[in-house]
Amino acid sequence: MKLREIAHSRTGDKGNISNISLIAYKAEDYEVIKNKVTTNKVKEWFKDIVHGEVLRYELPNIGALNFVMYDALGGGVTRSLSLDMHGKSLSSILLDMDI
């Protein structure tokens, strides 16, 4: 199943760091997401984009995970040659992951 079937996502950025939240639609799906969407899997999923560390923060009270990805925006908003300098489309890319 695609991650988008049980969760939605939002992104943010600061410099060359991208931040992706992953929020379960239903409380019972949080554990599935927590177990299947690891930092290693996210790092591998974004291997062509993210060149730094990936950290994961768990927010069980709201059924969410927050991934902070370093060296992820081609040098940052003011330096990137990417069409999506802020990395807003990264949330859609994450939701396309098979779990």
Rank of each mutant, 00 (worst) to 15 (best):
S9V: 05
V32L: 15
D84A: 06
R56N: 13
L95K: 08
G87W: 00
L55E: 15
T11M: 01
M69T: 03
E5L: 06
G15R: 04
N35D: 07
N19E: 06
R4M: 13
I20D: 09
G74T: 02
G87E: 00
G74P: 03
D48W: 07
K36R: 15
R79G: 06
T78L: 12
N35Q: 09
A24F: 13
I49G: 03
V42W: 05
S91M: 14
M1T: 15
N61P: 05
D96M: 10
G75Q: 02
H51D: 11
D48K: 11
D96K: 13
L73A: 00
G52N: 07
N19P: 02
R4L: 13
N16D: 15
V68M: 07
V68H: 04
E28F: 05
G12N: 09
N16I: 00
R79M: 14
N16E: 05
S91A: 15
T78Y: 11
A7V: 07
F67N: 04
K36D: 12
I20T: 10
N66E: 10
R4V: 12
S89F: 00
L59C: 10
D29W: 10
W45A: 14
G63A: 10
V77I: 06
K26Q: 15
D13A: 02
D84G: 04
Y70G: 09
S9M: 04
I20Y: 09
I33Y: 05
A27W: 06
M85P: 11
G74Q: 02
E31M: 04
S9A: 14
Y70M: 15
W45L: 15
M97V: 09
G87L: 00
S92G: 13
R10H: 12
E53P: 08
V42Q: 02
L81Y: 05
S18Y: 01
R4F: 12
D98N: 14
V37M: 05
S18H: 04
N19G: 02
N16L: 03
M69H: 02
L65Q: 12
S80D: 07
F67M: 06
Y30E: 01
V68G: 01
T38L: 08
K88W: 06
R4P: 08
V42P: 01
Y57W: 07
S91P: 07
E31L: 08
L59V: 10
N35L: 02
G74S: 03
D84S: 02
G15N: 07
F46G: 04
V42N: 00
N19L: 06
E5W: 00
I62H: 03
A7G: 07
G76E: 03
T38Q: 11
H8T: 15
W45E: 14
S82M: 10
N61R: 11
D71E: 11
K41D: 10
S9R: 13
L3Q: 08
L81T: 11
H51Y: 12
G15L: 04
S9E: 09
W45V: 11
D98T: 12
E28K: 12
Y70P: 03
G15D: 03
N35V: 01
D84I: 05
G12C: 11
E58W: 08
L3I: 07
D29G: 09
R79D: 15
A24W: 12
E5A: 11
N40R: 14
T39Q: 05
